[in-house]
């Protein structure tokens, strides 16, 4: 073991392989020839302005909106590399409730707003057959604690929660099955700056400790800097630049990336 492991600097097999994704809405090109690999535990930020295709890309990868061209392969736990769009709908649903997570910009889109916080966290486990009430509550309480929500609020519905709490609850709801890949669509926008900082720090810790791979769509370059190993810059549906996050931000090559980086006000 010790003789071999220091030598293997090659990347582990990819968790996700995206190849040649394309999508048009009528005459408009929403996505054009996007390809990349994601390794286990890697956080990838996708940046670009509104309409650049970021969310279209996220939805195409997460089996939420079928692309016109290209393929998405995911390394499943038991059946190796699988084409996501070659799966049955039931298989896709199972994947997105177990090994994947999806954190929406608007927490209300990812939560059941009128059922208790505890039930929101427990739902995925119940879907997998966990019926033991005491155990479900115990796991839910543990997760509420991890995302810094007072356990005393476990029986309250998220409708009564603040924006920051709702977002943290949405994260707990997604992570309870210990997924290996989480999609996040602008997870911090719409929150106050102080609330954002707390959420960002939490996401940073969770992705690191759980070895969670993530694709984070954001228009906020500071969010990308803090969370992501690597960054993709999109413009008009195309990837114009890829690199380590600090490479892209500190030494941008493409005219559009240079414009994006130089347009940010330094606080």
């Amino acid at each position: 073991m010790t003789l071999i492991s220091p030598q293997t600097s090659a990347a582990p097999s990819a968790l996700l392989q995206v190849r040649g994704l394309g999508k048009n809405y009528g005459d408009r090109v929403a996505l054009k020839d996007v390809s990349f690999d994601l390794w286990p535990g890697e956080v990838l930020a996708v940046v670009g302005e509104s309409g650049s295709g970021k969310s279209t890309l996220l939805n195409a990868i997460a089996a939420r909106s079928r692309p016109d061209t290209g393929s998405v392969h995911f390394m499943t736990r038991h059946e190796g590399l699988q084409e996501v769009y070659g799966m049955t709908e039931a298989q896709q649903r199972l994947l997105s409730r177990t090994d994947w997570g999806f954190v929406h910009q608007n927490a209300a889109d990812g939560l059941r707003m009128d059922v208790s916080a505890g039930a929101n966290v427990g739902e995925r486990l119940m879907g997998l057959g966990e019926r033991h009430y005491g155990r479900l509550r115990e796991i839910a309480a543990g997760w509420l604690e991890r995302v810094e929500i007072d356990v005393a609020r476990m029986d309250d519905a998220p409708r009564t929660f603040s924006g920051g709490m709702r977002q943290r609850l949405q994260i707990a709801r997604n992570l309870v099955t210990e997924p290996r890949l989480v999609f996040m669509d602008e997870p911090t926008s719409g929150l106050d700056v102080s609330v954002q900082a707390r959420l960002l720090d939490m996401l940073r810790q969770l992705t690191r400790k759980m070895q969670l791979a993530a694709i984070v769509v954001t228009h906020d370059l500071a969010v990308a800097r803090l969370l992501a190993h690597r960054m993709i810059v999109m413009q008009r549906g195309c990837v114009v630049e890829v690199g380590l996050t600090d490479q892209v931000l500190d030494d941008p090559q493409h005219p559009y990336t240079q414009l994006l980086v130089s347009s940010v006000l330094q606080p």
């Binding site: 220091p6 030598q7 600097s9 090659a10 990347a11 890697e42 190993h229 690597r230 690199g243 380590l244």
Partner: peptide, 19 residues
């Protein structure tokens, strides 16, 4: 020592993060 040489100008992002 004990590692293949790495050229950082052409290494993959994964190698760079690890390095």
């Amino acid at each position: 020592p004990g590692r293949a040489p790495i050229d950082v100008t052409s290494a993959s992002p994964y190698e760079l993060v690890r390095l």
